[in-house]
């Protein structure tokens, strides 16, 4: 049976269509489910294998991005989310979804425990530039990370599209702790560095780091590696024709299928989660 993905939408989430599409492209079935359907009991989270919280502007980002949506989930879906995580089911939050997961406390989550306590430990603040920007960045993944979403991935280019993506924790001890458990899964890197050697704790200048994130953090996972969130948009490079350079170095010639030779680097991330669900059945 195909893994089933719940893609949340409503209240200003706006990447729900493409998030559903990328899961389907890697062999899952995906439903766009309005948040209120879970809250009203009209749909049951437990019937799904994967939960995706897509990007967008839930509640207009007012009072801090992701906060109001985070509260709705924290208060009205707490038990269902707790059970979902404890059952070892993967969750991803992208952009606004990442902000939601951080503000519900699901990321980074309690140290060394698979049971969420819904305590907020980090935050995402306004970009140092003060501007919302859509620009492409280069990312590198921690090969030692327990994150099931990023297995085998090294470097990827994809867009960021946010005004509040600066990852912040109260002290460097907090960041050290996450680093030691390889939860700093993905960072902004300088594309001129050799592949695999880009990750650094030293602050990269704007726009290599688009937001001034501490230690150039682009995304983190919880201690189990099942819950993962990131500011950049991997779904936005599901096909190479979405890469800004495809007229410069796109694949030629074309195969029979539209995606043959044109699969984008971002798709692997979603395939990893779907494969994880399949292999753990």
């Amino acid at each position: 049976m195909q893994p089933k993905v719940a893609v949340l939408f409503g209240f200003g989430i706006n990447c729900d269509h493409e998030t559903k599409a990328v899961f389907e492209l890697v062999g899952a079935t995906a439903d766009r489910i309005h948040v209120n359907r879970f809250i009203d009991g009209d749909a049951a989270l437990e019937t799904y294998d994967i939960l995706a919280v897509p990007g967008g502007f839930s509640f207009g980002d007012h009072l801090g991005s992701g906060r109001l949506m985070g509260n709705r989930m924290r208060y009205a879906m707490r038990d269902a989310l707790q059970a979902f995580v404890e059952a070892g089911k993967p969750i991803i939050g992208i952009c606004n979804g990442f902000q939601v997961l951080v503000k519900t406390g699901l990321l980074p989550g309690p140290e060394g425990s698979a049971s969420p306590d819904f305590i907020q430990r980090g935050s995402l603040g306004l970009n140092d530039s003060g501007r919302y920007e859509d620009r492409w960045v280069t990312l590198e993944f921690d090969p030692e990370s327990p994150c099931i979403w990023t297995k085998g991935m090294t470097r990827m280019e994809c867009p960021v599209r946010h005004g509040e993506g600066k990852y912040i924790m109260p002290s460097s001890d907090d960041l050290d702790r996450l680093a030691s458990s390889n939860q700093l899964t993905v960072r902004y890197v300088d594309p001129d560095t050799p592949v695999g050697e880009g990750r650094t704790d030293a602050q990269l200048p704007y726009p290599l780091s688009p937001n001034g994130s501490m230690r150039n953090i682009a995304g983190i996972c919880d201690s189990t590696g099942l819950v993962f969130g990131l500011m950049p948009h991997p779904e936005a490079i599901y096909a190479q024709w979405l890469h800004p350079h495809h007229t410069r170095d796109g694949a030629q010639p074309h195969g029979a299928g539209a995606m043959d030779g044109w699969e984008g680097e971002g798709l692997q991330l979603f395939r990893n989660a779907v494969e994880h669900v399949r292999s753990n059945r």
Binding site: E18, D134, W136, H233, A236, L242, P244, T247
Partner: peptide
Amino acid sequence: VRQYDHEVIAQTAIKPFVGVKR
């Protein structure tokens, strides 16, 4: 222009800015 989201919906194949440094 960069402050507009020009890529949501994952469909934009030619963007407002192009080239080596975009």
